[in-house]
Amino acid sequence: MPRIPLVTRHGDLPAPNQHFFDRIIRTRGRVAAPFQVLLNSPDVADRVASVGEFLLYDTVLSPPAKTLVWLIAAREYDCDYEWTASVRHARQAGLPDALIDAIRERKPPAGLTREQEVLVEFCRQLLRGNHRVDDATYRAAVEQFGVAATVQIAAMIGYFVMLAFVVNAFEVDPTEAESDPFL
């Protein structure tokens, strides 16, 4: 049970705020569960949706790369909802089950491509310990992905952590993660 009233219909908001709901429907086709929570502060929901649209759909990262970032962030912040949705997308993008399992169990993954190896190391360093990336890993990321994409990797981690707080704080139902868009 979510801990807060969910905004699922246009009519759930007072008239002056209904345009925020309508804009999310117009741009995304549906209001995903975390946004049903966020619409309790309608203007915030709208602005988060705008950042999310970019990071989910307009990013320069390939589907295998971006879904791997999602999995790592969801795992590190114990976000069942994000994990469920990310696994589905990661499989569609061709990520092997062994890699997904290693991320879930926080183990060192084996048999990675160079791109995956760099990505896992970069993301885990940012998310753990003192939240810094050592020079060698930073250089490897920029060499592998370029600066523009590396910025988007870091921003994407941030977006998933931000939404993990929402999902975890308000106990959003993980079964809702079966639909798209999920964040």
Binding site: V37, N40, T150, A154, I157
Partner: peptide, 29 residues
């Protein structure tokens, strides 16, 4: 929830979320 209300508690979590979000690019670079 009792202290801040529904909108307030969403904004509390999102304030934390926003500052966390921007921490990652700041730290990475």
């Amino acid at each position: 929830l009792e202290h801040f209300g529904a909108q307030g508690v969403v904004e509390l979590v999102m304030t934390l979320g926003y500052f966390a979000m921007i921490a990652f690019p700041l730290n990475a670079f």
